[in-house]
């Protein structure tokens, strides 16, 4: 059984089909990139997979559970237990330090554990920045704090929506390198991007167009390392 399966998923706003009969399977441990032009439905799909939105029609099976039929309260619990989220705009709480931002995810999940949170920051190379506020960190450092926050509760899937959209090449490379390490450790990764260089680092790539999957390619020479053209 696949970890995630979308079956005939539609998301309809008025007469706009943001998702139009999408079928997709993601295996455990897979690294998938989703590409497509702006407005093609990438974020809509991420919101549905991330239990923040429900499809208008269709089934979304996560670990065999149809999350399209769950209550809002259960969706919050599933999201908390199984999903790590990374956003383009980081969304760090700006009056909490780096380590406290990581601990916040622990707080809503179970109980805050500063030692574990510091270890997570160490994994993303920010051990020395733990006591800094987001405003005292560079964009790349902030996104690494977000990665630490996303992985702190050992989620089944990490969903990243344009994680490198606000980063320069150097920081982009650092973040992709973190994804590669997570992939090696067996984490399932779904990364939305419109940057081909980032998409090419993944094992498989899906292209959305007008809410439909228009192209699917498997990366034959997958290394997990980014190659700048």
């Amino acid at each position: 059984m696949s970890l995630l399966e979308l079956k005939n998923v539609y998301k309809i706003y008025g007469d706009l089909h943001a998702l139009d009969d999408v079928n997709l399977k993601v295996e455990k441990g897979e690294w998938l990139a989703i590409m497509g032009p702006s407005g093609s439905g990438k974020s809509t799909m991420m919101n549905i997979i991330g239990c923040m939105d429900k499809p208008s029609k269709g089934e979304v099976l996560l670990d065999g559970v149809n999350i399209a039929a769950e209550s809002a309260k259960n969706l919050t619990n599933i999201r908390r237990d199984k999903i790590g989220l990374i956003f383009q705009q980081f969304h760090l709480v700006n009056y909490l330090t780096a380590v406290e931002n990581v601990m916040l995810a622990q707080y809503y999940h179970s109980i805050p554990d500063e030692k574990e949170a510091l270890e997570a920051l160490e994994r993303v190379g920010l051990a020395d920045r733990a006591k800094h506020l987001p405003s005292q960190l560079s964009g790349g450092e902030q996104q690494r704090v977000c990665v630490a926050r996303a992985l702190i509760n050992h989620p089944e899937i990490i969903l990243a929506d344009e994680p490198t959209g606000n980063l320069d090449d150097a920081n982009e490379e650092i973040v992709v390198e973190l994804f590669r390490k997570l992939h090696e450790e067996g984490t399932t990764l779904i990364v939305v991007t419109h940057d081909p260089e980032v998409a090419e680092t993944a094992q498989r790539m899906v292209v959305l167009r007008n809410g439909k999957i228009s192209k699917e390619t498997v990366n034959e020479n997958f290394t997990g390392h980014i190659r700048f053209h």
């Binding site: 919050t76 999201r79 908390r80 989220l85 705009q89 969304h91 995810a105 809503y108 999940h109 926050r149």
Partner: peptide, 16 residues
């Protein structure tokens, strides 16, 4: 709102 949205996203219930 974005801070509160984030709390909800990482698992905070309405009550919290």
């Amino acid at each position: 709102s974005s801070e509160i949205g984030l709390m909800k996203a990482i698992g905070a219930h309405n009550g919290a």
